[in-house]
Design a protein around this nucleic acid. Structure first.
Lengths: 221, 221
DNA sequence: TTTCCTGTGTGACCATTGTCACAGACAGAC
DNA sequence: GTCTGTCTGTGACAATGGTCACACAGGAAA
C-alpha cells in the first residue's frame, strides 16, 4: 500500500496514469507496492525471469551485458519516468532476461504485479502507447549502439559519452570503460590525449570539459 | 483488394488473425493490399518515415546498418510470418526509421494501413500479444548482437554464422562480411583458416561444412 | 575464342585496441 | 602523522582487424 505522498510523486512521474478512470486508477494503486533498493544491487540478471513491472521514482538502473572476460558494456540506462522495458519484454514474451540490471544509486520504485500490468495494457490506450513507446525507444537506442560499437572508434565514442554527460563529470575511468565496453587503460590513454589537445582537464574521479566545441567536432567527425 | 488465394495464404501465415471476430477480420482484409517487391529493393531507409504495416508472405528482408565507410552490418532478418517490427516502432512511436531494409529475395507482402493497424492493436489481445512478442524478440536479438560485436572475435562470429545457415551455403565472402559488419578480405582469410583445419570446403560462392562438431566447438569456445 | 566481370587468394603493412606489469598519487581511516 | 585501498599514468608488447594492391580463376557474354 502506498502512502499519499508516494502516490502523488508516482502520478507526477507517470502522467499517463493520471488519465485512467478513477476506479481503475484506484485499483491499480491498491495492488502496487513501493520498493527501496540500495545502490549497487543487482535487480535482475541473465536467465532469470521476472515478477512485476517496476516504475522508477528515483535513482537509475544501468542495464549491461557482461563478457566472460570480466568486461562489461552498458546497453542503456533506465531513468525515473521510464520503467524498465526489459521487464515488460519478460512479462509479455515470457522469456527470461538477457542482461543484467544494476541500481546505480539508491532506488525507489513502485512495482505493479504482472496481472495489473496486463490489465492496464488491455484496457487503456494511453498506457499501451506508453509501453510501446518505451519499446520503440529502446530498439532505436540499441540499433544506434550496435552501429557505434561496430563502426566507431573508441575515441569518438568516448568523446560522445563525455559530451552527453551533464556538468562536471564525476566518474572513474573504469566506470567510463564499463559504459563503452572497453578497458580502463584505454580510456585513461584516450583521456590523456584529449587533455593534451586542451579539450578536457583531468582530476581524480573528475573530468572537466574545457572545449566543448572542439570535442563535439571531433566526435562528429 | 486481396484474392481468395492470397487471403488463404495470409491467414495461414498469420494464425492470430484467424481468431478475430468475422466482421473485424473482413474489415481488416478489405483495407489490406498486396505488394510485390523485387529482390534488392530498398524498402525503407534511415530517416524515412513509414506508411503502413507490412506482413510478409514470402521472401526475407535484411535489416542493416550502413557505416559511412561503405561497410554494413546486418541487424536481423525478417522472415515470412514475422512482419517488420521496425515499422511498428515507427507507427507507434512516430519516429523515423534508423536502419535500412532490403529485400533479399522477391517479396510478397500484405500491407495494412496505419489506421487498421491501430484498430487491431486497440481491439484485439491476440494481435497485441503478437506485436509485443515481436518487439520482445527483436530486443533480445539486438542485445545478443551488441554483445557479440563488442566481445566476440570475428572468427567465432563467423563460425556461428556458418553453423546457423542451412545446408550447403551459397554466399559470397562479401555477403558474409556484410552480415558480420566486417571486410571481405578478413572473411576470406578466416575461411581459409577453417578450411586448413578441415572444418569446411570452399568453392566459388559456396561453403560446405565438413566438420560441424569441430566448428561448433570452436564457436562455443 | 577472346573479353569481361565477379569472386577469391594473398602478402605487406598499419592502426587500434587489449594485456600485463608496474609505479605513483591521493583520500580517508587509524 | 602513517597506512591502506582505490584511482590513475605509463611503457612494452601482442593480437586482431582493416586497408591496399594486386594476381588469378572461372564463367558468362560477345
Amino acid at each position: 500500500m502506498l502512502t499519499a505522498e508516494i502516490k502523488d510523486r508516482f502520478l507526477q512521474q507517470y502522467p499517463m496514469l493520471r488519465e485512467l478512470p478513477d476506479e481503475d486508477q484506484a485499483e491499480m494503486l491498491a495492488t502496487a507496492s513501493l520498493m527501496h533498493v540500495p545502490a549497487g544491487t543487482v535487480l535482475f540478471d541473465e536467465e532469470q525471469s521476472c515478477k512485476g513491472f517496476p516504475l522508477l521514482l528515483s535513482g537509475n538502473i544501468r542495464v549491461i551485458k557482461a563478457s566472460p572476460h570480466g568486461r562489461e558494456l552498458q546497453l542503456y540506462r533506465v531513468i525515473p519516468g521510464e520503467s524498465c522495458i526489459l521487464t515488460s519484454s519478460c512479462l509479455l514474451g515470457d522469456t527470461p532476461y538477457h542482461a543484467r540490471g544494476i541500481a546505480e544509486q539508491d532506488i525507489e520504485m513502485v512495482v505493479l504485479p504482472a496481472s495489473a500490468f496486463h490489465t492496464l495494457l488491455d484496457k487503456h490506450d494511453t498506457f499501451r502507447g506508453y509501453v510501446f513507446h518505451l519499446f520503440s525507444d529502446r530498439l532505436t537506442d540499441l540499433m544506434q549502439l550496435v552501429s557505434a560499437v561496430a563502426f566507431q572508434k573508441l575515441d569518438q565514442r568516448l568523446a560522445i559519452l563525455l559530451i552527453n554527460k551533464p556538468g562536471p563529470i564525476h566518474a572513474t575511468h573504469q566506470a567510463l570503460a564499463d559504459e563503452l565496453g572497453s578497458a580502463r587503460e584505454i580510456v585513461s590513454r584516450l583521456l590523456k590525449g584529449f587533455a593534451e589537445q586542451g579539450w578536457v582537464k583531468l582530476g581524480r574521479e573528475q573530468i572537466e570539459i574545457t572545449d566543448t566545441a572542439a570535442l563535439r567536432k571531433f566526435a562528429a567527425l
